[in-house]
Design a protein around this nucleic acid. Structure first.
Lengths: 203, 203
DNA sequence: AGGGCCATGTAACCTGTTACATGATTGA
DNA sequence: TCAATCATGTAACAGGTTACATGGCCCT
């Protein structure tokens, strides 16, 4: 369900094709909700079947043709409804394989485990760099905006029909999501370092 | 895959039935990997099919019969192998519906959004209390140990054959997982409070 | 010459979720 | 008396993952 509404939400910004939606996912939503292409195509099909989006094929000469999706009034209504009815709980079912391995950490030798914690830290540091890059990008909102520039005239005409949209309004909310990523990364790094210290002072 | 090895790992502690495995999940692993009963039963069937566990029915008079699962040597080997080959990346695909809604926050009115952030905070506070309760429990390791006491004589005899196990060895690793939960909860609470403050000072 | 990007899709598979079925015992 | 606990499963469904198919363009 969430993927469905994430796609609908993105389509309220501008009409897009599946491949392009995937790009947007990878550069903005990815750090709290990832999607892969086949899933997006599948979902777009389902959305069109429901009448929440409409598609047109945009022929191209040098590139494969594109299927551009535009959100319908029903789609907008469905998205608004979904946003309105926030879930009773924000606690999401956690699936963290790394933690399962740590839970059974007594069955591994210390050096290997410390190495894993170190790898864990390195990954969060890299993750932070990535997030910080996104933050800088979003300050000039080049993310979606640059992408926007690439839209063809045909797509732009569709866009004008489909939305009244300014990036400035979205900025604070996008920043919120990025900030959380930084905070939790920091917390995880601090945690892992403490774990290493504790392991090292053990006999 | 992870659920499979989590079950195998728990069965290295002691032979158990599905219902009981679920209990253990709910009181220890749940906060980083949740499982539901039907999933556990399905997985136990698959594990037995693979020869990683063996089961015997334990008839009971006042209660429904139990099917007790015991890990085999192949199962132990499989589990050890899984632990050994830590994954290349500890970055798990994130699925956080709440964040998707925040991302599209501009489309909701401020009061409602603040209310949602508040609900979010309340849930993390409750989550922390839950984790702290687990931490106190695990200091006296009453969690698995009490559960252990409830094992019947039949199960205990199986247990002696199947493992050489002391809770003291596991403690630090279980504490690690709990600590991370506290740290990330704190980070999330701090984040949400800052979001609320920012929203409130907006026009 | 070879890999990555553009671009769309299908099919199979794996895993997680929800609902159903059954039924005795125990505590509030 | 009513809900919860104990206890095991099946079936259907929803959603995420992986592999496959196709093929031109562009950069190194």
């Amino acid at each position: 369900m969430t993927l469905r509404y994430a796609i609908l939400g993105l389509l309220t910004y501008a009409p897009m094709n599946g491949y392009y939606l995937k790009k947007i996912f990878d550069t903005s939503i990815n750090h709290f909700w990832s999607a892969n292409l086949s899933q997006i195509y599948r979902e777009l099909g389902a959305l069109e079947h429901k009448g929440f989006v409409r598609s047109k094929v945009l022929p191209q000469d040098d590139r494969p043709d594109k299927r551009i999706y535009c959100i319908t009034d029903e789609g907008k209504k469905a998205f608004a409804g979904w946003l309105e009815e926030f879930p009773e709980t924000s606690v999401t079912p956690k699936r963290d394989e790394f933690m399962v391995r740590i839970f059974f950490g007594s069955k591994l030798d210390k050096e290997k485990l410390i190495g894993q914690f170190q790898k864990f830290i390195d990954e969060r540091e890299k993750g932070k760099l990535y997030i910080e890059a996104l933050q800088n990008e979003s300050k000039t909102y080049s993310g979606l905006k640059n992408a926007d520039k690439k839209l063809s005239e045909f797509e732009k005409s569709l866009k004008e029909r489909c939305d009244d949209f300014s990036f400035e309004k979205e900025m604070p909310y996008w920043s919120f999501t990025l900030k959380r990523a930084v905070y939790t990364s920091d917390a995880s790094i601090k945690w892992a370092k403490e774990c290493i210290r504790e392991l090292e002072k053990q006999p």
